[in-house]
Design a protein around this nucleic acid. Structure first.
Length: 546
RNA sequence: GCCCUCGUAGCUCAGCGGAUAGAGCAUCGGCCUCCGGAGCCGUGUGCGCAGGUUCGAGUCCUGCCGAGGGCACCA
């Protein structure tokens, strides 16, 4: 059991005892009570706000309540307690001896890369994360890769935090864009000019050369879309983004699910005909206007397909929760989608829509906008060729999804210090270097049970352990908040702590006590494990040499 | 006009309702007989504005100002 859990148990017991003894109502709202590491070290190693949260309802003041709780805690102090103090408005601060850190390190090493930092906050909830879902009408651009990194890392984080995660790409392989793609392909194939509004890219010309199918627009469009989808798949795989499911919109339409979905809405009196089109009375459910489901030409709209698709996610495939990652330019869809699933009997709280803000890349003086319709949007492939897959991933996971941001490629490329991937990977390389040097000098790591970790008393060592000890909570928070950037921040903190340790604490030098060398080698191993887990969640490699 | 998202340091960005708001870059200045100096240490500035909720607000609510995006029988 971790120190955190020990403390939490002790606090709960003290609260129960005081509540019973004094007849106080000390019940709390879930999530309102925190047991956390104070921001300032002089406030101790751990702190809780429980007295602040419960004093009012108990009809007492926070400091008096804290005092009663501290007395109760002191009667049976948790392991490693040096002192328990009341501070500020009524925080209860725990000061512990360094042994709690040595315990934490041993626990990490015992659990290892696979078992450490697997907080079960998901309780096996089945979650589908849909992301990217770019139309297969052209190569994937940087914006898709950017938000794709978010979706992929979120999937990794949530999977580690105990969710059953399925990653899905919704393939829009039907409708007007595919017809347009087919027209463009056939035009090129016959050496004609690509029609107005068609796709002009070189990839269309290349595909046209290879095309040997029928002279029919939809068939040609589907054929081209399949080929382009392969390109997209490869581009995404190059930055470590993979999917469990590539779900075809055409398959939904052909299955009759769209008609069924419209019929379901109709049965609830939410459908009407006007101007030859079929409409969804979305305003009944909070949307700003009613929406067309079936156009007067008989085709289903994107919304109709999307509602059928989400009905499939929730009611056919039975996901407990669905997370859709869209670009901010699609936020206009959200209200209709929410209204639609609610009309279909799905609690809208089960659908989370994450909107990625626009991200701009600047290359020196040149601005490269990543918007979909910008003609100068650079492809994901060219960015990866430029700065590499690891830098692409970590840069895209440095900023939160809902923060519009700008990155300077020239800075990333020319001044490597601007690029955090070097800083973090150097820690990894140094760890590899320690291993190689140890081998060279014939130093072998002794079994953990024979090593005295309590020799680690240098402030740099303790800071490093403190950082490592946080990882399970970082993973939990990142999963709960749907914020993989928290893992990025942690990995950078860990690298900072490791570089500091490495700088001040020689591991293999001649004048280091062999027992201390052993303890430090295990601390290095713990750091390797932490980095491997953290970088793994981000989809960034942890090289042993650079 | 209506809707959504966002305004944090000179720049690029972090920040779970908690105690004195953090990093990197940039500025200036230290540290290489030492396991990778792509490193380490020091140096000072800030929550758009105004109210509200709260023991406590950068964080939640309202209004205003500013930026981006959206308001199709396109996807």
């Amino acid at each position: 059991m971790s120190t955190r859990e020990h403390l939490a148990t002790a606090v709960s017991r003290a609260v129960a005892d005081v509540a019973a003894r004094d007849g106080l109502d000390l019940s709390v709202e879930p999530g309102s009570v925190h047991l956390e590491r104070p921001a300032r070290r002089e406030h101790g190693d751990w702190s809780t706000n429980i007295a602040l949260v419960t004093a009012k309802q108990a009809g007492t003041n926070p400091r008096a309540l804290a005092s009663a709780l501290v007395d109760q805690l002191n009667a049976q102090p948790p392991a490693h307690t040096v002192s328990i103090e009341i501070a500020g408005p009524g925080f209860i601060n725990f000061r512990l001896d360094d042994g709690w850190l040595h315990d934490a390190l041993e626990e990490l090493l015992t659990e290892g890369e696979d078992a450490f930092a697997r907080p079960d906050v998901g309780h096996s909830e089945r979650v589908q994360i849909e992301f990217i879902s770019a139309n297969p009408t052209g190569p994937i651009h940087v914006g898709n890769g950017w938000w794709g990194s978010y979706g992929d890392a979120l999937a990794r984080v949530m999977a580690r935090a105990g969710y059953q995660v399925s990653r899905e790409y919704y393939v829009n392989d039907t409708g007007g864009q595919i017809r347009t793609l087919g027209e463009s392909l056939l035009a090129r194939h016959h050496g004609q000019v690509v029609p107005e509004g068609g796709y002009h890219g070189d990839y269309v010309a290349e595909l046209a050369l290879a095309y040997d199918g029928p002279d029919e627009v939809t068939a040609a469009g589907r054929w081209a879309a399949d080929r382009i989808l392969d390109l997209i798949r490869n581009s995404l795989a190059s930055v470590g983004i993979t999917f469990d499911e590539w779900y075809s919109q055409a398959s939904i339409e052909e299955s009759g699910a769209v008609d069924e979905t419209i019929a379901l809405l109709d049965a609830k009196g939410l459908v009407f005909e006007q101007d030859g089109a079929t409409w969804f009375r979305a305003t009944e459910l909070g949307d700003s206007r009613d929406r067309v489901l079936r156009k007067s030409d008989g085709d289903a709209t994107y919304l109709a397909g999307d509602l059928a698709y989400h009905r499939d996610k929730f009611l056919v495939r039975g996901f407990d929760r669905v997370i859709d990652v869209f670009g901010a330019d699609h936020h206009g869809q959200v209200a209709s989608l929410m209204a639609g699933i609610e009309a279909l009997g799905v609690d809208p709280g089960r659908l989370e829509v994450k909107l990625g803000q626009m991200v701009s890349l600047v290359d020196g003086d040149e601005t490269v906008k990543m918007g979909k319709r910008a003609g100068n949007a650079i492809s994901l492939d060219s960015l990866v060729a430029d700065i590499g897959p690891d830098a692409t991933r970590i840069l895209s996971l440095m900023t939160s999804l809902d923060q519009a941001s700008t990155f300077d490629l020239a800075a990333v490329r020319e001044q490597s210090v601007e690029n955090p991937v070097f800083y973090v990977q150097m820690a990894s390389a140094r760890i590899g270097g320690v291993g190689r040097k140890a081998l060279e000098r014939g130093v072998v790591r002794a079994p953990l049970s024979e090593v005295d970790l309590s020799l680690l008393t240098h402030e740099r060592e303790l800071d490093l352990i403190r950082c490592l000890e946080e990882l399970p909570e970082v993973v939990a928070d990142a999963a709960i908040d749907r914020a993989p950037t928290k893992v990025t921040a942690w990995v950078r903190r860990l690298a900072t702590c490791f570089h500091g340790f490495y700088h001040d604490c020689p591991i293999l030098a001649e004048d280091v006590d062999p027992a201390l060398t052993q303890a430090r080698l295990w601390l290095v191993e713990a750091t390797r494990i932490g980095l491997a887990i953290g970088l793994g969640l981000l989809g960034v490699t942890a090289p042993e040499a650079m």
